[in-house]
């Protein structure tokens, strides 16, 4: 005969295995979703462009951003974290990525939108190399699952040139 303890043990083991298998399956099925993101971003206005007392260039911009992230959502998606970075190269740094704006998209219904926003974080360089610099605007998204694997991807949207003089 099986004792009570053995029954409880078997039940617990089985349910944990089942949950683990379902979590793996959820992540596995996410791999079949091939999203197509459409997005657009442009700089409308340079609000401020100056050299800080520390010697670093600081820029504040106003952006026009629109995107359709609906195809990123699957049944295993908790939220999508989306953000826009300014990326450029200087003689000192081969990679500069600076987040300008970010947003949490909680569900599919709110995944298609258009906003006009000032930069949430200022663009601050390590040094003073920003005058006349070409900046790439890149949209990144991070799909955060209910359980399992997290998915990251990005898309270059547009480029613009900063003014040649401080404001």
């Amino acid at each position: 005969m099986f004792s009570l303890w053995q029954r409880v043990n078997a039940l617990a083991t089985f349910s944990i295995l089942l949950l683990a298998a379902l979590s793996c399956a959820a992540s596995f099925l996410d791999a079949f979703n091939s999203p197509s993101v459409r997005a657009h971003a442009e700089v409308i206005k340079v609000n401020r462009f100056r050299k800080q007392l520390t010697g670093n260039d600081e820029v504040s911009l106003t952006l026009n951003i629109s995107m359709d992230l609906q195809s990123l959502f699957t049944w295993n998606t908790k939220q999508v974290f989306v953000f826009l970075t300014a990326e450029y190269e200087t003689s000192k740094n081969s990679v500069n990525q600076i987040s300008l704006w970010d947003h949490i998209v909680p569900d599919k219904d709110n995944a298609n939108f258009r906003v006009r926003v000032p930069t949430k974080y200022p663009l601050i360089d390590q040094g003073n190399n920003l005058r006349g610099k070409k900046i790439d605007l890149v949209l990144h998204w991070h799909v955060m699952p209910k359980t399992g694997r997290m998915i990251r991807d990005k898309m270059a949207l547009s480029e613009f040139y900063l003014p040649d003089a401080y404001t």
């Binding site: 974290f81 953000f83 200087t90 003689s91 000192k92 740094n93 081969s94 990679v95 500069n96 990525q97 600076i98 987040s99 970010d102 974080y121 390590q126 991070h142």
Partner: peptide, 14 residues
Amino acid sequence: RVIKVHERQDTGEV
């Protein structure tokens, strides 16, 4: 979450 990255041209330090 990482919001800013600067990677050195010569040494590759971040």
